[in-house]
Design a protein around this nucleic acid. Structure first.
Ligand SMILES: [Mn+2]
Ligand SMILES: [Mn+2]
Ligand SMILES: [Zn+2]
Ligand SMILES: [Zn+2]
Lengths: 132, 132
DNA sequence: CACTTGTTTAGAATCATTATAAACTACATA
DNA sequence: TATGTAGTTTATAATGATTCTAAACAAGTG
């Protein structure tokens, strides 16, 4: 199974629950954005199985640490994650509270001129807030 | 007093507590970033008075709504605010968990090419994560 | 001053997230 | 294949930032 490698790379044994989480996260045509609660619902519907929140949190965080998921920097009462781990940006629709992908090509090249001594840039993310 | 106008514009009466919050927020040479807890500490030290958290939350949110404070989009267990309401961006030092201003001129012009039907851009914010 | 409406506050409620620890499982090794 | 150990799952509790509540209090008006 293709997900075993992802799990092992993340330092996790391939258990039934984790493989099911992988199916929901990665066995899709399109990438998507989600909160832990939304993922939990999706698992219940799609896999027709309940996985404890603790396992979901742990697995998502392990993937995020390894770079198989991204956290989206946004102020919300819940943390948003993204299965699209390519370098890209986001619209945030303030009214609908929805995220929309902004491909790298939809945003011009970004050149950070300021340097901080002894630090290097890990990521550059643009958040574009939308209103009506 | 110069803060009375800010308060009235935000739909708030100028009370003793709110004026003291204003002093801490706006009576400074430099702008700064803060969490509610940090602001609470600052008030205790600087004004030598305790103001209830409810009042601090309410006042900060009223100012944020009116545009006298900005919320910084970042994933943290606490919400970060900024007294610098000019259009600017941020470095986020992952190790020290500190925010650093990135002036508009430190980032090239950003051109959002994608348009969303019926929505207009309210803000464009760049977050640059730093590692060692 | 008297009245109304807005404000402050302590404490409770909420709720996303993290911690705990007991029952269970993967899997290496005998 | 059987056994042992380290890792995993789960229900449940704890944590902690934020929001809510409602009673005591203050601002502003006439
Ligand atoms: Mn998280
Ligand atoms: Mn807030
Ligand atoms: Zn995305
Ligand atoms: Zn700033």
């Amino acid at each position: 199974m293709k997900y075993i490698e992802k799990l092992r790379n993340s330092g996790l044994r391939p258990t039934k629950q984790r493989l099911q989480i992988c199916e929901v996260l990665f066995d899709t045509e399109k990438t998507f954005h989600f909160t832990i609660n939304e993922l939990n619902q999706k698992i219940k519907n799609q896999i027709n199985n309940k996985i404890s929140l603790a396992t979901i949190y742990n697995t998502v965080h392990a993937f995020e640490k390894k770079g198989y998921l991204k956290q989206i920097p946004i102020n919300s009462n819940q943390t948003y994650f993204d299965t699209n781990v390519s370098h890209h940006h986001h619209f945030y629709d303030l009214k609908d509270e929805k995220l929309i992908d902004l491909e790298n090509s939809d945003v011009g090249p970004i050149n950070i001129l300021k340097k901080i001594n002894g630090k290097k840039i890990k990521s550059v993310e643009v958040l574009v807030k939308l209103e009506d």
